[in-house]
Design a protein around this nucleic acid. Structure first.
Length: 415
RNA sequence: GUGGCCAUAGUUCAGUUGGUUAGAACGCCAGGUUGUGGCCCUGGAGGUCGUGGGUUCAACUCCCACUGGUCACCCCA
């Protein structure tokens, strides 16, 4: 084969697009229900935007970005996530000046140059929401409800919502020192990966997949016990809200998000039906990010969800099988004259909203009937010399096999 | 970036200790019905056995490299 898709990318074929469109429409409907409006930003941006927002030291920025120099030697990057661009657009277009709270959603492709595996692609698709302007835990909860509602609307109810607080610029540095001190004590027993993480990103050590690491850190200090007054209150309110709504959740003191910009609330929705990459959606609060990107100091929160992983869950739970509606009428034409007449009629019917189809290969009647059957056409009309002469024909119901006499010039296809 | 497994028709897969015309099912095309689909019967098309090298009288089969896929680690949606 001469050309093939680039590693880690995939064609979404006609058999799958109906399911994708269904998911997209549920996403849009739910977003609108919750008062979020769509924003469409370019799929590439100045490299600095991502480096600045996501964090230079994160894996995404340090080794996974699709960056290249354009013809004017400017470094541009295919977006690895959606929040940075949404906030750039928010600031650039002064959306915050028009109303104090801006609620946005997006849906589209993202790019990260990682080694592909189950549930991980180099071009993948996400939908996500951002609420910019409110520091209230109410909006944190709305964000979780929004994500959960989308999954439920799609018939997915086996997932778990994990929440944590990662603190703020006040309490996180203090906690980090305490954690590093604790980790240094057991450093020699930790896995090589975790040993490196102590300096790079100590919080990561806590959610290591290495079983020995987990045992060793069982009693390690957790950030939720070291939150400052403000963060603590925020987290407690959040929890009481979730309790009052009877939204099942689990506090996971080891939950860490991979992007630097999160403050206070962090959450993740994961599915046991997926493989090793089990996160369906992840999000959190980013109270410093707007300012970091050059806007006014404005609190915000958002989440992003992977569509491919969602599709995997739908497929595994057997709730899929979406199809486009079949043709209402298939013309079987027996000669050139009939073909021309049927072709014209097809167009006429389509213009009046009836989905009509015709054979384009001048095949035998048997082959045309087979084609009509393959396409699951609801009705078939055989057109030959006799029909054109009498201006009447037999409309065949393909399900029952029964035929009824019709006049060609006033074709009426039963619903 | 590291590691395991895999690579044969359009698809899912067989292929004996290496042995001469590489098979099946499904799908596709045609006929059985010179104007009627679905089921059935008959026939047909379709493969540089991922690529390159090596061993051998002989390689789909053994060895090496590469490419691609897949799963896992790192990390994440």
């Amino acid at each position: 084969m001469k050309y093939r898709v680039i590693k880690g990318t995939k064609d979404i074929l006609p058999v799958e697009t109906a399911a994708w469109q269904h998911v997209e429409s549920v996403v849009r409907r739910t977003m609108h229900l919750f008062g979020y409006r769509e924003i469409r930003t370019p799929i590439f941006e100045q490299t600095g935007l991502f480096a600045r927002s996501i964090g230079e030291l994160t894996d995404i920025v340090s080794k996974e970005m699709y960056s290249f120099l354009d013809r004017s030697k400017e470094s541009v990057t295919l977006r690895p996530e959606g929040t940075a661009a949404a906030l750039r657009a928010y600031i650039e277009n002064s959306l915050g000046e028009q109303s104090p709270l801006t609620k946005l959603y997006y849906i589209g492709p993202m790019f990260r140059q990682e080694r592909p595996q189950a549930g991980r692609l180099r071009q993948f698709h996400q939908f996500g929401a951002e609420a910019i302007g409110s520091p209230s835990p109410l909006i944190d909860v709305e964000m979780m409800l929004l994500a959960v509602e989308i999954y439920r609307s799609l018939g997915i109810d086996k997932f778990s919502l994990k929440i944590n607080s990662v603190g703020c610029e006040q309490c996180r540095p203090r906690y980090k020192e305490i954690l590093i001190a604790a980790l240094k004590n057991i450093e020699s027993q930790l896995s090589p990966d975790s040993r490196m993480r102590i300096d790079q990103n100590p919080l990561r050590v806590l959610d290591s997949k290495d079983e020995h690491d987990r045992l060793l850190t069982a009693g390690a200090p957790l950030i939720k016990d070291y939150l400052c007054g403000d963060c603590k209150k925020h987290f407690e309110t959040l929890i009481s809200l979730l309790d009052s709504l009877a939204l099942p959740y689990e506090v996971d003191g080891r939950l860490v998000r991979g992007l630097d910009y999160y403050t206070k609330t962090a959450f993740e929705i994961s599915s046991a039906m997926l493989g090793s990459q089990d996160a369906l959606a992840g999000g959190g609060r980013y109270d410093l990010l707007v300012e970091e990107l050059g806007g006014k100091r404005t609190p915000g929160i958002g989440f992003a969800a992977g569509i491919e992983r969602l599709m995997m869950v739908l497929e595994k739970s057997g709730t899929h099988s979406f199809t486009v509606p079949p043709p209402d009428l298939f013309f079987v034409a027996l000669d050139d004259h009939a073909r021309r007449w049927s072709f014209g009629k097809t167009y006429e019917l389509r213009r009046s909203g009836i989905s009509a189809e015709i054979d384009y290969l001048a095949r035998s009647i048997k082959a045309q009937m087979r084609e009509a059957n393959r396409q699951s056409a609801r009705y078939v009309l055989v057109v030959g010399e006799a029909e054109l002469a009498s201006r009447t024909g037999k409309l065949k119901n393909m399900k029952t096999g029964e035929e009824t006499e019709v006049t060609l010039d006033a074709l009426n296809i039963p619903r």
